[in-house]
Design a binder for these strands. Structure first.
Lengths: 226, 226
DNA sequence: TTTAATCTTAATTTAATCTTAATTTAATAC
DNA sequence: GTATTAAATTAAGATTAAATTAAGATTAAA
């Protein structure tokens, strides 16, 4: 269980980090929205605890931007005392729960447990397709048990394909999610990277996982023959 | 197992002393901060139980002063009912756990045991990765049995990497834990120290333990290829 | 107070990764 | 079977991240 805590107040941040670690959670702590987005995009968390009052981007904005980037991790917002407006706004921006400061640590733990219970089936930690496995926690990819070393973009592309296993993803979708770009009609970069991935993942296996759907896009398909 | 109890209320003090003695702990009881500091400096305790409401210096202050004097004994704070702020403040001043009055004696015992166990493991366990070993008790690092001399920061960095073995730690995380700094976007000190560590640890071995995950951070990985 | 060790900053070099673009191959429509 | 189009492949240049080096600052030790 891995938790991202976004809190600018050092004292509170440390308190949360320490307390959660004692409960055997792996905790990453960061202090502003830019870091939060970066962490959320590069790691897989089970829960994100997000303070609303932050320097720069506030919690609402961060939450919305995460949702826009397809980060569906449950979010618990920490709101200032009695900020009822905050609660409403927070939940409408995509937060899953909120907690009013000051709060008891026990209550936070209870909410985390509740949230995780609810969300458990969504998060299969290790992504699989056939004998290909991706462990986002370790950023480790293996095929038939053999480790495969991927660059950043290769990894991001493969993760996107795996999270959409069985579905066809178009170059436009890939460009949007992996490169955060709009398609301008010229770049063939997705193409090139699919090629890179195939060289690392499919080249030495008779079962080709990355399929081309001509005219549409690509698809990871573990059921070879039907 | 020796425990220092700092409690000004005579009744509660006696109760704790007696109860803990029955559990075979050696108990010293004192009533204010001055005594507490004196005791803590002249004896070695396994746990210190510290009431927050004390005449003269309060529990927070005492705890902080002990930490400043390099007394790292685990501290359990006794806080008034529902004083959430106290908990936060207590933990940030260096306390390891807190207990809200009124509490059951069983719970206190459980916390003492947990704290002691955890502390024991944390400080005692030899950290390993491949043929690299770190003995925190002796502050001794060896690779393939050969002693390696590290400076303070080098040691702290290696310890952090080893405690997160298999996981990727980002420069931001390293900076936060090893340097206790926020990342301001400019410093490359982590970089420099990784380099120092590699020169001492990986340079003369064919197996490189410290891996760079470009764009993310560093990772100690003992499973070279799987 | 002097010396040495260690830490930090900054500039430079190296290397990995990304991106573009040109070419080749394969699939589909005519 | 040929033309057309989409995708695969290749390679080179651009970009960025990290490694390295060295000098100055700070701290601890003698």
């Amino acid at each position: 269980m891995r938790i991202l805590v976004v809190e600018d107040d050092k004292k509170v941040g440390r308190f949360l980090e320490k307390g959660l670690q004692e409960e055997q959670y792996a905790v990453d702590l960061c202090r502003d929205g830019a870091d939060a987005l970066y962490f959320a995009q590069t790691n897989t968390y089970d829960v994100i605890i997000l303070d609303i009052m932050l320097p720069g981007k506030d919690g609402f904005t961060i939450c919305r931007e995460m949702r826009e980037n397809s980060i569906l991790t449950p979010v618990i917002m920490l709101t200032a005392k009695d900020a009822v407006e905050d609660k409403i706004s927070g939940l409408s921006e995509g937060a899953d729960d909120y907690l009013t400061k000051p709060f008891s640590f026990e209550e936070l733990l209870a909410r985390i447990r509740a949230l995780f219970r609810r969300n458990q089936d969504y998060k299969t930690k290790v992504l699989k397709a056939g004998d290909l496995e991706m462990d986002p926690l370790r950023r480790l990819v293996t095929r038939a048990g053999k480790k495969i070393i991927l660059t950043g973009k290769e990894y991001a592309l493969l993760e996107y394909l795996l999270r959409n296993k069985g579905r066809i993803v178009t170059p436009v979708m890939i460009l949007g999610h992996v490169w955060d770009m709009d398609y301008d009609g010229t770049s063939n970069i997705v193409n090139v990277y699919i090629n890179h991935l195939r060289n690392k993942i499919d080249k030495y296996s008779s079962v080709k996982l990355i399929k081309t759907i001509r005219g549409l896009g690509y698809q990871i398909d573990e059921n070879q023959e039907i």
